[in-house]
Amino acid sequence: MTIVPLDTFRAELERLRADAEAAMDAAADEVALEAARIDFLGAKSGRLKAIQKSLGGLAAADKPAGGRHFNEAKAAVTACFEAAQARVAGAGSECRLDAIDVTLPAEPVRLGHMHPITRTIRRVQEIMGRLGFESVDGPEVEDQWHNFEALAIPAEHPARDPLDNFYLAVARGADPLLLRSQTSTVQIRVMENREPPLRIVSLGRVYRPDTADATHYPMFHQVEGLLVEPGTTLAHLKSVLRMFASSFLGHAVNVRFRPSFFPFTEPSVEVDMEWGGRWVEMGGAGMIDPAVLEAVGYDPDSVTGFAFGLGVERIAARRYGVEDIRDFYRNDARFLRQF
């Protein structure tokens, strides 16, 4: 009598087990399942019975292991049969008729979406709020005093050119009105009505004639911060902006100042923050020009302050990966629903 190697015996067992499971899972009804049962588990000529007979051909030392493997396979095939039997029996039964197809579509819940510009403004407000800056708001149609003169932009200044502003057709007396070109106007209004110490962020729409393209739009949003307290220095400005940038990006961020020029701040700087491994322009900033403090009735010898401005579209575009800022104003629901 030839000796059957244990490995061969196990391989046959595995093949049988796989065939049995496939056949029983595939059985759609009781008739098919019974055929499969006879084929594999049949007491007389089932394939399991046949393989049991070959157990005797194993070497004596392999017989205990062979027996164990055989019993495991038989238990598995039997369990598979019982599961299939339960399935086939249940398919026709009354209680499963109302079972749901859980993959059918849900009753839709329409979610609303906040505009990405609003989201960005909120985030800036929240961070600045934690630093003690109060959000303020003011008119969009302004007079010459608030948009220019109080900000040390005199009558002959090019920034007041009719081609560079949206002037209204009607004036108030001799005073031309215009859509504000910056939200610093609100800072002037607040300073005119309140005494230092003061920490505010003014935010909202501003308007400058510019041909709309991927990075320009004639209407956009600004957030401008202002702090007026005795003893304020450029170091306070840098520290506040670094805290802001770190909080906005969620990790410690470096900021740097480059000299710049704005009529209403002196010294004036451009602020860059390190974002994604390079310097990205955040906005303009500086110490409030003494002429501005005087214009609102403060004494520049006893209080100093700083101001900064951020373009909301620019940081929102970068934050959300929007390549064309006109997308913010197209109001395409497919765009808005992503926020």
Partner: peptide, 26 residues
């Protein structure tokens, strides 16, 4: 400003504390 820009703004400290102030949304 002239002195500051030539000296370089890198010398301006960036870790000055500011006092806490409570704020409310209007």
């Amino acid at each position: 400003e002239e002195i500051a820009r030539v000296e370089g703004y890198a010398r301006v400290p960036e870790d000055v504390a500011i006092s806490a102030r409570p704020v409310e949304l209007s």
